[in-house]
Each structure stands twice: as structure tokens, then as C-alpha cells.
Amino acid sequence: MKVEARLFDITTAFFFVSAVVYGAWAKEPVGLVALILTGGLSLIIGSYFHFVARRAEQRPEDDPDAEIADGAGEMGFFSPGSYWPAGVAASAGLTAVALAFMQIWLIVIGGVVLLLTVGGLVFEYHTRPNVTE
């Protein structure tokens, strides 16, 4: 996580330096505010990565002397074939189109379908706990 934290530190510095240069040069407030807010959001993400990096064990990506083979092994479980992401994308698209045309009834339908498909994606491999009495 230290690598990601450094990347966001660099982007945060870039946005704040850009805001100073833009504010001195352009004299236009909207772009200045946008750059400051973008730098602030980047600072939030970088701070989160610093927070997590202190508590997580060191990964091979964080070790400058690591070999490629150090990162080998199981990375986690990935669904071999799930249709839920397509449903999430379709329902998010429906909701976005409904928002674009400001159709309240379609926004409600799209939001409900979006929540159902996200729930299906999250709980796709969830099984009941084995309760033995």
C-alpha cells in the first residue's frame, strides 16, 4: 500500500501546485476551486492508503528488492462466470438514462433494480452458516 500512497502523494502535490500556478496566472475562480478540491480528494485517498499501509503486512510490491516470484501464489477468489456484473451495468445505465431525461418513475425503477443486482453480486457465493443443534 505504500506504493499507492506515494502515487497519491505525488498527485496531491501536483494538483495543489497546479492550483497555485493557475490561480496566479488565470485569475479565474472556478478552475482554481476545482483544482483545490481535486487536490483535497487526492489527499483523502492518499491519507487512507497511508493509514492502511501502517496496519497491513508488507507486500512484495512494497519491497524494492523483491523478486517477481515473491508475488506468485493465490491472489484470491474470482468468479469464473457471473452474469451479475452485466446486470449491475445495465441497471446503472438505465438509472443514468432516467436521470438524464429526469423521469422520476424510471429513476425509482432503475434504483430498485440496481440495488437488487448489487445485492445479487455481493451475495452470489454466500451460503448459510452450518447450524447444528
Rank of each mutant, 00 (worst) to 15 (best):
P85M: 12
E74T: 03
Q103F: 10
I68R: 04
I109G: 05
P85W: 13
L94I: 10
G73I: 11
I68C: 01
G81T: 05
G73A: 10
M75I: 14
V88H: 06
F101T: 10
Q58N: 08
A69N: 00
W84M: 09
F77G: 02
V97Y: 06
E57V: 07
V108P: 02
A90F: 04
I109F: 12
G71E: 06
F77S: 09
D63I: 14
V112A: 15
E57Q: 10
L114K: 02
A100S: 06
G110E: 02
F101I: 10
A100Q: 04
A96I: 15
A100M: 08
L99I: 02
L94S: 06
V113N: 02
G111C: 12
M75G: 09
A96F: 15
F101W: 13
G110D: 02
V97G: 01
L114N: 08
L106W: 02
I68N: 01
P85Q: 14
L115A: 13
M102H: 13
A86M: 12
W105C: 02
I107P: 00
L99P: 00
P64V: 09
A86E: 11
F78P: 00
I107D: 00
I107A: 02
E74H: 07
A69L: 04
A98D: 01
V108I: 15
G81K: 09
A66W: 09
G87E: 04
L99A: 05
A69M: 03
A96E: 15
P64I: 12
V108T: 11
D70W: 03
S91N: 10
D70K: 03
S79V: 03
G93D: 13
L99T: 00
L106R: 00
D63G: 04
M102G: 02
G73D: 06
M75Y: 11
A100W: 05
G87K: 04
P60F: 10
S82L: 09
I109Q: 08
L99D: 00
L114A: 15
F78I: 09
A66M: 13
V88Y: 07
G110H: 01
D62I: 01
W105G: 14
G81E: 08
L94V: 09
A90L: 13
R59Q: 13
E67T: 09
A89S: 01
L115W: 02
F78E: 12
S82H: 03
L114W: 08
E74S: 07
A72H: 11
W105V: 03
E61F: 06
Y83P: 03
A66F: 12
Q103D: 15
D65A: 08
A86C: 06
S91F: 04
E61R: 05
W105H: 09
F101Q: 08
P80R: 05
A96L: 15
A90D: 05
R59F: 10
G111M: 10
W84D: 11
P64M: 05
Q103K: 14
G110K: 00
E74Y: 07
P85I: 12
G93T: 13
G73F: 10
F77T: 07
E61A: 09
V113F: 04
R59A: 14
E67S: 14
Q58C: 06
D63Q: 12
D62K: 02
I107R: 02
R59L: 15
D62T: 01
P60K: 07
L114D: 04
V112T: 14
V113Y: 01
G76Y: 14
E57R: 07
L106G: 00
L114Y: 08
I107N: 01
D70P: 00
E57G: 06
